[in-house]
Every structure is written in structure tokens, then in C-alpha cells.
Design a protein around this nucleic acid. Structure first.
Lengths: 226, 226
DNA sequence: TTTAATACTTGATTTCAGTCAATGAATGGC
DNA sequence: GCCATTCATTGACTGAAATCAAGTATTAAA
């Protein structure tokens, strides 16, 4: 990332590695004061905004190497909750120390800007998914996203376990549970993947990619206003 | 913002004020190299991602005081296009100069982090709108968003002109033009607002607020999974 | 183990918003 | 000025996905 070994050490010295957390544990809750950024080392975390009546909107799933909490810098309060989906190891980074360090290390500052900017870009992707894609395009996009992120971390891109429930997937993608379930069945029938409960094996990545781009039925975006 | 008069002057010295731009002019296009952040002084701008076939996804409308281009820091390329909706004055800020300045002025650095973080929070709001709200909730949310942002800048919160077309509103909200049109008519029939082409007068802000929270038909979120 | 609770799947039905189609109003170009 | 084009509205119809409903599988608890 363009940091000198010295800088890396300084950065490393402020990172705290915590004992493992377990399924259901909260990293933080909406409204909590913001002090730390969190980085998933192993396992997975979901972020979500709870609503009064027990419902929720899932905002994202966070896999190893991914950072959580950037949205809280603004208000100095967490505006979502973060809950561990399976036994996970999470690092915490005190943001005030990181900020301080970043004004001494220009390349760290630059990385921070990039990190925040990337988060915006990812939200934009999600926004397009929700505004324009149909149910099957959404699920295909989701699966390939998980796949790609796992591959980047050295895990299998075609054989993995989903740590979240169908309900959570549907909530995240703006779909009903039943729709997600039906799509998994259909994808399997169509030979795109093999699914058995939370165990997913992607079979036809090419066709899934085509789906994501909405190029399944001859040519991109048959709806003219897309 | 916690900047000394001296700092403000330094910041001011790198900001360039450009001649007015006109309806249809581009600030930048997707793929352009990233050099500047833009701040709307007067007028309005839309950002959008064009797709091969001439379609587009509108990502946002930007009113006076709002900043454009933060999503491009990451890749050093603009990943959306920005087009002026009406005669507008736009400032440009060279990002490399701003970045440099921010490592000398901690409070500026802090503001930058907050600014980026706020953008993430706003995207999250939009994400929830698209994932969970129905058509009327979306349009009500949109109108109150515009209203609130205008008020913050000293304009009327209840009487304004929309600089974007129905088509663009629909595209932004994930709705068809016809749906937007029908909703405007219905809102007017219900005494929520008065609409005549692009001229909007909000009449019943209370009822609009209630709509945004989905509390129209007795209690929040009648759909259990929300 | 048995029971209870939760998660998942599948089918039948409904509904909200999209699509298609037609017309009218406003804007821009010549 | 007129004509062409784009924009907006309204109605009729359709369809994708939500809701409702029932049943099965899995996990957790006693």
C-alpha cells in the first residue's frame, strides 16, 4: 500500500486483536458511540439497521479482510448494528489514533481516503442492483460477489458455505425469503449451481456472469429505459 | 468547521470558481481522469452512470452547497457522469492540493473524513429506500429530501421548482415515469401538495413525513419482515 | 430421546407497479 | 410564426414478485 516497514509497524501497534466472538454477538449497536473501526480477520459479520418493530434492513455482509464502521465517522455514533454470523476473529482500530497517525504518514492518509471512497463506490453498486435488477439478477450478483471476495482471500470461489440465512439474504437484496428459496431451486434446476442448505457450489460461472449483466435474453437491457 | 481564518484562506486559495455552466453541460464523464472535486454554488447537477444502450441510472441530484466526485478518489477515474440540470455555478477543488493541505491542517483532514463518511450514510439511506419502501413512500421521501436541503440553504422548503424531469425522478427512485406522474396527481388530489409541471408547493408536510416512515395505515411497517 | 422452535421449501393467489398505447402540453429549432 | 420533438398525463392491461398458506427439514432445548 506504499507504506514503509516503519509505518507498517506503527500502524500495527495501534491495532488490537480481540478474542474470538461467537454467532449472535454484537460488535456494536446502532446509537453506540464510535471509537473503533473493525476489521474481520476470520468469520463473517452482518451490519443492519434495526427498526422499532423488530424488523431490520441488512446493509451488508462482511468477510475476512473487510472493514466495518466507516459510516460512523460523521456523527461519532454508529448508525447501524453489527452482529457476528459465525465464530469470528475481529481486530479493532481506535479511530482517533488512526486519524492522528494518518496526518504524519501521507500515504496512510491517501489510503484512508481511498478506503472511504471505495465504500461509496460499493454502495453505488448496491444502489444500482436495487433500482434496476430483477430478482434473478440480484441473487446472481450476490453469489458472484461472495465468490469473488472469497477468492481474493485465497478461499475457493466455487465451493463455500453461506453464513447467513435465506431470510437475511432476501432482506439484503430487497426480496422475500420465498423468492430467494425459489431462485436457489431454479438455479440448481438450470445447472448453474448446486445448493444444499448453506453449502453452495457454483457450476456455471459464465452463465451467472451473463445474468448479472442482464444479458440473458439476447442483448443487454431489453427495457429501453434501463 | 473548526478551521482558523488562516486555514480558511489557504483552503480558499486552491478553490477555483468557474464561469457558469448551462443545462446539458458535463462536469465530467464516466472514465475521465479524476483531478477535481466539485461544489455546486448555484443551480443543480445530476450524477448518473450511462449504460451502453443509452439508458442510465441516476445516482443523485446535487443542490447548492453539495459536493461531487468523492467516489472517484479510489480509482482516480470518475465512475459516473455529472451533467448540469440548469444554469449553474460550480467551484472546482484540485484534489491533490486538498489532500496535501489536509495533512497540514488536522481539522481539515477530520472534515474530509466526515464528509466521506456522510456520503456513505446518505447512500445507506437510499439503499433502504430502494429495498423497503413502496412507490408513494419513495416519492414522499424524495420531495422532503429536496425540501430539507433547500431549507438548509435558505430557500423555501415548501415552494420550489424541480430542475429534473419526471423521467429522471423515476429513474433515480427506481420507478417508471408513469408511476411518478400518477403519484404527483394522487398527492395533489389528497391535498398533500400542489403541482404544476415543475413547480411544487408542499401543503401537508406532516402527512408527507408520516408517509416517509411508512406510518400511513396504522402503525409502522405492517409488513412483518420489514 | 422427545418436543419445541426455527429455517427452508413449495404451491396458490393477490397486488403493486411496469408496460403498452394514446393524447395533450410545453419547449426548441428554423 | 410553424413544426418537430420531448415531456407529462391518463387509461387499460400484464406480470414479477409479495403475500398467504401448508408442509418438511433442521436445530435447539428439555
Amino acid at each position: 500500500m506504499g507504506l514503509s516497514p516503519d509505518d507498517v509497524e506503527r500502524l500495527d501497534s495501534i491495532v488490537k486483536r480481540n478474542r474470538p466472538l461467537h454467532r449472535g454477538d454484537h460488535l456494536f449497536r446502532e446509537g453506540d458511540g464510535f471509537r473503533f473501526l473493525y476489521v474481520v480477520t476470520t468469520g463473517s459479520v452482518k451490519t443492519y439497521t434495526p427498526s422499532e418493530d423488530g424488523g431490520e434492513q441488512v446493509l451488508g455482509f462482511h468477510l475476512p479482510g473487510e472493514i466495518i464502521g466507516l459510516d460512523a465517522i460523521q456523527s461519532e455514533r454508529h448508525c447501524c448494528s453489527a452482529r457476528v454470523l459465525e465464530t469470528s476473529a475481529i481486530c479493532e482500530i481506535p479511530f482517533d489514533r488512526l486519524e492522528e497517525l494518518s496526518s504524519f504518514i501521507p500515504s496512510l492518509q491517501h489510503q484512508m481516503y481511498r478506503l472511504l471512497s471505495r465504500e461509496i463506490g460499493q454502495d453505488t453498486e448496491m444502489l444500482m442492483l436495487l433500482a434496476k435488477k430483477n430478482a434473478e439478477e440480484r441473487l446472481a450478483t450476490f453469489l458472484l460477489s461472495i465468490s469473488g471476495r472469497l477468492r481474493k482471500r485465497g478461499f475457493s470461489a466455487t465451493d463455500f458455505y453461506l453464513s447467513m440465512s435465506r431470510h437475511e439474504i432476501g432482506n439484503y437484496l430487497g426480496l422475500a425469503v420465498e423468492t430467494v428459496s425459489r431462485l436457489f431451486t431454479r438455479f440448481q434446476d438450470d445447472g448453474l449451481l448446486h445448493v444444499e442448505r448453506k453449502h453452495i457450489q457454483l457450476i456455471d460461472l459464465v452463465r451467472l456472469e451473463a445474468m448479472v449483466n442482464g444479458t440473458v435474453n439476447g442483448g443487454p437491457n431489453h427495457r429501453h429505459w434501463k
